[in-house]
Design a protein around this nucleic acid. Structure first.
Length: 421
RNA sequence: GGGGGAAUGUCCCGAGCGGCAAAGGGGGCGGACUGUAAAUCCGCUGGCUAUGCCUUCGCAGGUUCGAGUCCUGCUUCCCCCA
C-alpha cells in the first residue's frame, strides 16, 4: 500500500485506519469515486454452505463500512458458480449441490447480511444478486465470441495460482481454469446492471479481480477498480474461524450466540487491537485505549470485543446475555441457567444413566471412548466435581437446586442437562 | 500404445522382514502453569452393551493357522518413452 497516500473520502480513510486494506489497484481513483458518493462495490460469496463463517467477516465489514460512508454495497451470491462445483480441493471432486439446496443456502445467508447491511431500493441500499441470473443463460458460442476472445491464455498461465499448480504437477481442471473467466465476467456484468465500479475480496482474489478489470476495459466498460483485504490469521498463525468444534458459523442455528461470544472472548492478546478495529464499530480513540491495556487488564478489552462483535451479529440484548452467562460461569462460579441446555427424558435419568454416555448425549465428546480417555486426563466434571469413576451413574440425586445437572468438558465448555417430562 | 512408480489410521504428511489397532510427525483435544491469552511442560488422539467383541491400510478375489505386507484382476493418480 502506498504509504504516502492520504485519502480524502471517508470510505478509504476508515478502511486504511482500521487495517482492511492489503492492495488497491488505484487509490486515487477509488478515493475520488467514494468522495463523490458514486462508489458501488461488490464482493462475491459462495453459497456451498447454509451459513457464512467468521472467515468472511472482514469482507462483510468492508461492505458495511462502504454503506455507512455513503456507498452502495453489492454482496454477490455465487449461485451460478456453485452449480458447477468448485474443483479446487485437490482430489475430492466436491459433490454438486441441488438447486433447492443452493436456494436454501442463499436465503439463510441473506439473513446474516441483513444484520450488517440495509437492503432496499434507495441509492445506498444493498442489493444481493446471484450470478446464476446471467451465468446460466450464457450460450457457449456467444460467450466465447464476446468474452472468451479477450482472455489471453498466455497471461492466465502466468498467474500465480495457475503457475503454482503447473509447477507442482497438480491437476488443474478445465472448469477451474475457467473460473477466473466467469468471475471476470461477473464484474463486467455487475457494472452493466448496477454500475458497479469496485470489486473487493481477500488478497488471494487479487489476480481474479484484476482479470475482471482487464476484461472490463476490453469490453468497453469504464475504469474498474480492485481492493483486497489482508488474509487474516491469528497472531500465532492459525487460520481465522476454526475452532475445536469446527467452523465459527454466523447463523445462530449453527452456532449458539454464547459460543460466538466465547470465540471472541478467547482472542489472543496480540490480536485484540487488530480485531477491535476490524470487527467492531467502536471509535478509534476508544480502541486505542483498549489495546493499550496490558497484562490481565486486557481481558476487559476482550470482553468488550466479544460483546460488540456479538451485538453486531445477534443484537445487543443477546450479546449482553452471553456476557452475563460468561460472567456467572467464569467469574462468580455460580450456575448460569442460560448455559446451553440439552434435554433428556426424565424417565431415563430416573433409571440412572452412565456418566460417559451423558457426556456423549450432551454433545461435549464424540464417543464414549473419548469420554473414557478424558476421564483419565481429568477433563470431565459433573456439577464442577471431577469425574474419577468412568462407571459412575447420574440420576435424579445429581440434580441441583435449579433442576439441572451441569456437565463440563475442559475449563471452558459447559452444558446443562435438564430432565424433560 | 510401451515401460516404471504410487494409493496406509475418514484432518494432513508418512514408516511399515507374513503375527498389527499398525512407528514417527503436524494438527487437534485434555491436564499443569496463567488472565477463559500466548509460550512451555505432560498425557491422549478407531468404535462398542468392554479384561472381551467389532471395523480399519484404493476395490474385488486368492494363497496361508494368520495378509497393510505375497499372488491375480480392476480403479485412480504420477513419471519416462511413443
Amino acid at each position: 500500500m502506498s504509504a504516502s497516500f492520504i485519502p480524502k473520502s471517508d470510505f478509504l480513510s476508515v478502511l486504511m485506519e482500521r487495517g482492511y486494506i492489503h492492495q488497491c489497484s488505484d487509490f486515487e481513483g477509488v478515493d475520488a469515486k467514494a468522495k463523490a458518493g458514486e462508489l458501488i462495490a461488490y464482493i462475491g460469496f459462495d453459497c456451498t454452505a447454509s451459513s457464512l463463517h467468521v472467515g468472511s467477516l472482514v469482507q462483510i465489514m468492508m461492505l458495511r463500512w462502504l454503506q455507512k460512508t455513503g456507498g452502495k454495497p453489492v454482496p454477490l451470491m455465487g449461485g451460478g458458480t456453485t452449480r458447477v462445483g468448485d474443483p479446487s480441493g485437490k482430489d475430492e471432486s466436491r459433490r454438486m449441490l441441488s438447486l433447492d439446496d443452493i436456494e436454501a443456502n442463499k436465503t439463510s445467508i441473506k439473513q446474516v447480511f441483513s444484520k450488517f447491511l440495509t437492503f432496499g431500493e434507495a441509492r445506498t441500499d444493498a442489493v444481493m444478486p446471484d450470478n446464476a441470473e446471467w451465468l446460466t443463460a450464457l450460450n457457449y458460442i456467444d460467450f466465447l465470441r464476446d468474452v472468451g476472445r479477450h482472455f489471453s491464455v498466455n497471461r492466465m498461465l502466468s498467474m500465480d495460482s495457475v503457475k503454482m499448480r503447473l509447477e507442482r504437477d497438480q491437476e488443474l481442471s478445465f472448469i477451474e481454469f475457467n473460473y477466473m473467466c466467469l468471475q471476470a465476467y461477473d464484474f463486467v456484468e455487475l457494472h452493466r446492471r448496477y454500475g458497479c465500479l469496485l470489486q473487493m475480496g481477500g488478497s488471494d482474489q487479487w489476480g481474479n479481480i484484476v482479470t475482471g478489470i482487464d476484461l472490463g476495459r476490453r469490453m468497453g466498460a469504464p475504469q474498474l477498480y480492485a481492493l483486497t483485504s489482508p488474509l487474516l490469521t491469528t497472531a500465532s498463525g492459525a487460520k481465522m474461524g476454526k475452532t475445536a468444534a469446527g467452523a465459527v458459523w454466523l447463523n445462530a442455528d449453527m452456532l449458539p450466540v454464547y459460543d460466538y461470544w466465547q470465540y471472541w472472548r478467547n482472542t489472543e492478546d496480540a490480536d485484540v487491537g487488530r480485531f477491535l478495529k476490524l470487527f467492531t464499530d467502536l471509535p478509534m480513540d476508544e480502541i486505542r485505549k483498549l489495546e493499550a491495556l496490558a497484562g490481565a487488564e486486557i481481558n476487559e478489552a476482550k470482553k468488550i470485543l466479544a460483546t460488540e462483535a456479538t451485538a453486531m451479529l445477534h443484537g445487543r440484548e443477546l450479546a449482553e446475555a452471553a456476557a452475563q452467562t460468561a460472567r456467572q460461569t467464569f467469574e462468580e462460579g455460580s450456575l448460569a441457567t442460560s448455559l446451553p441446555t440439552v434435554e433428556i427424558a426424565a424417565s431415563e435419568l430416573a433409571a440412572g444413566i452412565g456418566v460417559l454416555s451423558a457426556f456423549v448425549k450432551a454433545g461435549l465428546v464424540p464417543s464414549t471412548g473419548e469420554a473414557r480417555r478424558q476421564v483419565k486426563s481429568g477433563g470431565l466434571r459433573v456439577n464442577d466435581a471431577p469425574v474419577t469413576d468412568e462407571r459412575a451413574q447420574l440420576s435424579n440425586a445429581d440434580l441441583m437446586g435449579e433442576g439441572v445437572i451441569k456437565l463440563s468438558f475442559g475449563r471452558k465448555k459447559h452444558v446443562l442437562l435438564a430432565p424433560r417430562a
